[in-house]
């Protein structure tokens, strides 16, 4: 018996090695693609005036000057001030509501009509409410972002809970779990963790996009800077701030992937 197990562990190791080698290939090809893209951009920019397509170098210089004046850091800091609370609140409420409706048939049937009505509303359509309820500033922008995070996480959690195996619930019951909350804690939440974490990850990315939209009515931040630069046709600054968003998304997404991998090590 011990031998048949070690065979299986060996096999898992081999798979791991194949994945590793794939990864280095991936990194290489990815780098090549990136260099090619920047090259094309550069070539294109030589044939166009600055306000249509600035060169990569011009964008770099713009970024440098924004950094030197501290404008970029301040904008980033301001954006984080509504991105973070918006994402956290929207994600938490989305997961909680998704789990509740996925688990309870009563809640599902009672609330589905409301979900159907509210779901198609784009977060930006709620700007009027955001301003009226929370004012122009971080709270209003956080509200818009929270709406975006809410639905993604709601559907991810809902789907995850719906897919939880009846058999695992039977096993838990037979081992002494009696209350519904106990079943949710011991089976439903861990079993739907893959879907829930995927939802969180998708939501985090979506919320960075919403940061720009949420700042349309005056909340300070990266989006604000992008609008300003656009209005004065400073396309190099526009691109510099877009890249800040990309970098932030990449950093947060990578960090979350590491967390996700650890949390789902059992898969």
């Amino acid at each position: 018996m011990a031998t048949d197990v070690s065979n299986e562990l060996d096999r898992a190791d081999n798979v791991g090695r194949i994945v590793d080698s794939l990864d280095s290939r991936r990194v290489l090809l990815g780098a090549l693609g990136l260099v090619g893209f920047v090259g094309l951009w550069w070539a294109g920019s030589t044939a166009q005036p600055e306000y249509i397509l600035p060169s990569p170098l011009a964008v770099g210089l713009a970024a440098q000057s924004e950094l030197a004046s501290g404008t970029m850091q301040a904008a980033l800091f301001n954006s984080v001030l509504h991105w973070l609370p918006g994402t956290v609140v929207g994600t938490t409420l989305g997961i909680a509501t998704g789990v509740a409706l996925g688990w309870s048939r009563f809640l599902d049937e009672a609330l589905t009509p409301i979900v159907r009505v509210l779901r198609p509303v784009p977060p930006l359509a709620l700007i009027g409410f955001a301003i009226a309820w929370f004012g122009i500033g971080h709270a209003g922008a956080a509200f818009i972002i929270a709406i975006g995070a809410f639905w993604i996480n709601f559907y991810a959690a809902y789907g995850g809970v719906e897919g939880v195996s009846e058999d695992l619930l039977d096993v838990a019951r037979s081992l002494g779990v009696q209350r519904q909350l106990g079943l949710i804690r011991t089976v439903v939440l861990p079993a739907s963790l893959p879907e829930i974490t995927t939802g969180i990850r998708t939501g985090i990315g979506r919320c960075w996009m919403l940061v720009v939209a949420a700042e349309i009515f005056g909340a300070p931040g990266i989006g604000r800077q992008i609008f300003r630069a656009s209005n004065s046709l400073q396309v190099d600054r526009v691109i510099a701030y877009i890249l800040v968003l990309s970098v932030m998304f990449l950093l947060v997404d990578t960090a979350f992937r590491v967390v996700q991998r650890r949390v789902l090590a059992w898969r």
Binding site: S165, D167, L168, D170, V171, R173, S174, L175, G176, Q178, V187, P190, A191, L193, W266, R267
Partner: peptide, 21 residues
């Protein structure tokens, strides 16, 4: 009248909790 700890159940398909060691 329901499942409980006085009954130990083993299914064909194991049904282990995959997230637990």
């Amino acid at each position: 009248d329901g499942p409980g700890p006085e009954l130990g159940i083993v299914f064909q398909e194991y049904h282990l909790f995959p997230w637990r060691t």
